[in-house]
Design a protein around this nucleic acid. Structure first.
Lengths: 71, 71
DNA sequence: TCTTAATGTATAATATTTTTAACATTAAGT
DNA sequence: ACTTAATGTTAAAAATATTATACATTAAGA
């Protein structure tokens, strides 16, 4: 009944030449812990950070984050 | 040189039978002030709220929010 | 086996978003 | 002119995201 945000960051990192969390963090302008927390769904990022992460991978935001019913 | 988030909430409200800020706020589960602040670019919402707002209008997130170079 | 890079995790401090409450202004209808 | 709904706006509190620091674990290579 309720929707949740999920993401494909780990996969995207893997296909981006196995980019590390650290590298992604630097390119997105945040710390490694922030990336780790988001990857593990500890919390959902700000819209701005979501856009920045998508930009790093050169994909639209909806290829990184989706909002769907959680099964 | 820097990117900024902009949104089309006001327009979307207008085309959604002139939905008020108050109605949108209720449907998105936030207060009217939050909608007003976002409409006026006082700050960018959380990713979750961005998704909820898009859901209210039944459009993808990128039809509500965009992240582009500011002129 | 030893090192090292990468990741997992936790906690307290800081920053940002969101709420609550309040009052002002605008536009429309009567 | 009066009323009312909608919006503009502000300030302080509460909630959530992010940082900084620190230490543990894992996997891979020398």
């Amino acid at each position: 009944m309720s929707k949740k945000i999920s993401n494909t960051i780990k996969t995207l990192r893997f296909f981006a030449n196995e980019m590390t969390q650290q590298e992604l963090a630097e390119k997105a302008g945040v710390t490694r812990q922030t990336i780790a927390a988001i990857e593990k769904d500890k919390y959902s990022p700000s819209l701005e950070l979501a856009f920045k992460i998508a930009d790093v991978f050169n994909v639209p935001l909806n290829e990184v984050f989706s909002y769907k019913e959680d099964e």
